[in-house]
Amino acid sequence: MPMSKDAETPVARYRDAARTRESILRAGQKLFAEQGYPTTGIRDVAAAASVNSALIQRYFGSKEGLLRATLEDLLKVDAITAGDRTQFGKRAVSILLAAGAVPNPVAIMALAMSDASARKLCIDLLHHNVIIPMSEWLGGNDALARAARLNTIWTGFITARYLLPVEPLNDDRIASTRQWLERVTQAIADEN
């Protein structure tokens, strides 16, 4: 145990498990979104989080467990569905436009597709964490298909804006596309 300045009193080191787990989670999200799941190693994540690689096993069980945790943390529809239903389109698009500022779950999933078990995990999480909760919130006729349509439109937008950037979707030219996306999103939510 390290000693204090007077060399007689031991200085206790306290482990902050929640902070360590959070640091690993954020490092995993960043690396999986930038480099891809197949090419990111446990040691890469540990180095980015400034922790021992054994802690990834301790907190997440495996690299796949870390992938699951990173996506579960990002794939949440609560922020989109909370609030006035008549403002759903505007709220959803505002969140989509902020997707470049946080680790992007679409990027993580797209870059994980070459690994068969990661692909299955991504599909399952997308279905259970986005499609089903969104369909329950939408309600009405054909809610599951409507949730899938929203996911398709949003995934395409995120891909064209952040992953394979299309020039007309840059910040200077986004206004008309934003309005269109807000209208389409709201129209799908309003279907019954």
Rank of each mutant, 00 (worst) to 15 (best):
residue 2 P to N: 11
residue 5 K to N: 09
residue 7 A to F: 14
residue 7 A to V: 15
residue 10 P to G: 00
residue 10 P to E: 00
residue 11 V to K: 08
residue 12 A to H: 09
residue 13 R to E: 09
residue 19 R to Y: 13
residue 20 T to E: 11
residue 22 E to W: 12
residue 24 I to Q: 02
residue 29 Q to S: 05
residue 30 K to L: 15
residue 30 K to V: 10
residue 31 L to A: 06
residue 32 F to I: 09
residue 32 F to Y: 15
residue 34 E to K: 12
residue 36 G to F: 05
residue 41 G to V: 01
residue 44 D to T: 03
residue 46 A to I: 04
residue 47 A to V: 09
residue 50 S to P: 09
residue 51 V to P: 01
residue 51 V to K: 00
residue 51 V to H: 01
residue 53 S to G: 03
residue 56 I to E: 02
residue 57 Q to E: 14
residue 57 Q to F: 07
residue 61 G to W: 08
residue 69 A to F: 06
residue 69 A to P: 04
residue 70 T to L: 06
residue 71 L to Q: 12
residue 72 E to G: 09
residue 73 D to G: 00
residue 74 L to Q: 03
residue 80 I to G: 02
residue 81 T to V: 13
residue 85 R to H: 03
residue 85 R to W: 00
residue 86 T to A: 11
residue 86 T to M: 10
residue 88 F to E: 01
residue 88 F to T: 03
residue 89 G to K: 06
residue 91 R to P: 11
residue 92 A to H: 07
residue 93 V to G: 02
residue 94 S to K: 07
residue 98 A to Q: 15
residue 98 A to D: 13
residue 101 A to F: 11
residue 106 V to S: 03
residue 106 V to T: 12
residue 107 A to K: 02
residue 107 A to H: 09
residue 109 M to N: 02
residue 109 M to G: 08
residue 111 L to Y: 07
residue 111 L to H: 06
residue 111 L to S: 03
residue 112 A to S: 12
residue 113 M to E: 07
residue 113 M to H: 09
residue 117 S to L: 13
residue 118 A to Y: 01
residue 119 R to L: 15
residue 122 C to P: 01
residue 123 I to N: 13
residue 123 I to D: 06
residue 123 I to T: 11
residue 124 D to K: 10
residue 124 D to W: 00
residue 126 L to Q: 10
residue 126 L to V: 07
residue 129 N to G: 04
residue 136 E to L: 14
residue 138 L to Y: 00
residue 139 G to T: 02
residue 139 G to P: 12
residue 140 G to A: 02
residue 141 N to L: 13
residue 141 N to W: 14
residue 144 L to E: 09
residue 145 A to M: 12
residue 149 R to T: 08
residue 149 R to P: 00
residue 151 N to H: 11
residue 151 N to D: 06
residue 152 T to Q: 14
residue 155 T to M: 08
residue 156 G to W: 01
residue 158 I to Q: 01
residue 164 L to Y: 14
residue 165 P to G: 05
residue 166 V to N: 13
residue 170 N to A: 10
residue 172 D to E: 10
residue 173 R to T: 13
residue 174 I to Y: 05
residue 175 A to F: 08
residue 178 R to A: 12
residue 180 W to V: 08
residue 180 W to C: 12
residue 180 W to G: 13
residue 182 E to S: 01
residue 182 E to C: 05
residue 183 R to Y: 04
residue 184 V to C: 01
residue 187 A to M: 09
residue 191 E to S: 02
